[in-house]
Every structure is written in structure tokens, then in C-alpha cells.
Amino acid sequence: MADLALARVRPDRTVLLRWLRDYGVYAGVAALVLVNLALTPNFASLDTLRVQAVQVTPILIVALGMAVVIGTGGIDLSVGAVMAVAASMISLYLGYGPVAAVLAALLAGAVSGLVAGSLVAFVGVQPIVATLALMIGGRGLAEVMLPQLDTFRNPELRALGSGMFLGVPYVVLIAVALTLVVVFVVRRTTFGRQVLAIGGNPAASALAGLPVRRVLIGVYVLAGVLAAVAGVLATARLGASDPTRLGELMELNAITAVVIGGTALTGGRVRIAGTVAGAVLMQLLTATLIMHNLPQSWTQIASAVVIVLAVWVARERGRN
């Protein structure tokens, strides 16, 4: 259908593609909401909204870091493993109290980011290779630290996962706050500008005296810490540390959210609002299919279609 429309109104093609790239993801979210309002019983309820919002938080938080990494032209495959490491750290350090456990988990995320960033910035390893190594190593490490699922009873940590403030779950509040912080960092700080410049033209950035290495390391540390936060929140909600399963395929989901949100994989552009919408779109898509009892494979196919569409739009735009 879209194809026909494109073929007929040729002069408007560029405009249409640009519109699709910039707003397509919002249109997609709106369309899914409308479909669900029409077809899914009880969709328009506060409970549904709350469940959806809670479920989207891990992808969303991880995708925030991923968007910034992708903005430099890099990629971070280690985020899922970092979530698992965070889960293990929680279990290991919960004896020292919940605050210590959470800090240990975040520290682990930062260290992982530091390693990835140093490999990329100083050794010159390609981001995909460096973080692939960390992805495999990190998951292994998490399982060595904590070989099996470990349920905990710590009330504070459980409250973090399932408590609410004025009817809004803590995890959602935290996700919103982190989104605002990342938007601020990208838009208003020198660091944010430098991320975009380095992604857009690394050689020019180096000649302009930008601290390229420092920025690259900072970006991976940010992604690592955000992944650790996602790991902590997911663990808290689960009431158990599950280093074997937690964060599986998270890297791909996060990359998908970023890409359909209109951030180019080539770097030089970061769209946080689009990324949020991308994460919401993926979540709604999954939820819609599940609520209608369709098998999981459908969800995967649907996501694949969305990704292909997003990449196609980005590519076609580049041609004109």
C-alpha cells in the first residue's frame, strides 16, 4: 500500500521519506494504540497502561545508552551480559545491605564500560568485536559468580521493583528521570555535542582538538551503567537474581528500538525521543500479539518487519 502511494507521487517522495524517518515511529505507536483500543478488551485501563510501562523499562533504559553509543558510530553488544553481571552482584553483596548491593552492581557496569571503551579508544578494536568479547565473557562471569537462580527477600529491594509513588511504579519514574538526564546530556552538554561530532567525522573531530578517547570511553561507561541500572531494576522486580536468563537478547532489542527511532547506525545523530517511542513500539507490538494469543514466533517476525522498514526508510532517504 505504502509502495503504491510512493510510486505515484514522485516529487513528494523525499518529503514523505523524511517524514517517515522522523515521525514514522510515533505514527506506528499511535496506530498500535488505536488497533488495541478497537480490538483488545480492557486495553484502555490504568492497569494495562501500568503493566506496559513497567515492562518497557529495561529495554528503554538500555536503549538510552545504546543510542548514545550508536551516536559515535559504535555499538554495544555487552549490555545484556552487563544486566546479568548486575544481577549476580546484587545477590553477592545483598548481605551488606541493598544500597551496597546496588552500588556494586552499578560499579560493575561502569567497569565493563571502561573496558569496552578502552579497547575501542586506545587499542582501536572495532566496537562490535570489543563488546562481543565482553558479551560472552560477561555472561560467563555472571554465571561463575552465581551459578543458579537466587531468590531474595530483602524488602527494600523488592519495594524498588514493585512499589509505587502516587500510583506510578518506581521503575517507571526512574526510567523517566534517566530519559530526561540523557536528553539533557545529549542536547546541552559539551560531551553531547562531541559525541555527535565524533560520530559524524572522527578524523575532523580529532583535528579540532576534541578529546576523542575520553568521549568514547565516557559513552561506553554510560551505556554500561545504564545497562546495570536496567539489570538492578529487573532483578528487583523479579525478586530473584537470574544471571542465566536476565538480559538475553537485550542488545538486539535495544538496537532495534534505537534504529526504528530514527538514529542512524552510521553515527552522528542521536534521537532520544525516537528511541523511547521505538522501545514503546516494540513493547506494544509484543503485547498486542500476546494479548491475542499469537505464538512468539509472530512477535519475532513482526519485529523483523519493523526493522526492515526502518532501515529501508533510512536508506531511501539517503539517496535523495
Partner: peptide, 20 residues
């Protein structure tokens, strides 16, 4: 190759080196 950052605005390109 070594000068412009094509995707950034005129403004951001001019300010790039002087940003600090």
C-alpha cells in the same frame, strides 16, 4: 575527510573546536 562534520549544523560545525 578532515574538516566538516556533514550531518551537524553550520552552527555546531563552527562552534566545534571552541566548545570548551
Amino acid at each position: 575527510a578532515e574538516g566538516i562534520v556533514p550531518g551537524l549544523s553550520v552552527r555546531d560545525n563552527i562552534a566545534l573546536a571552541a566548545l570548551p
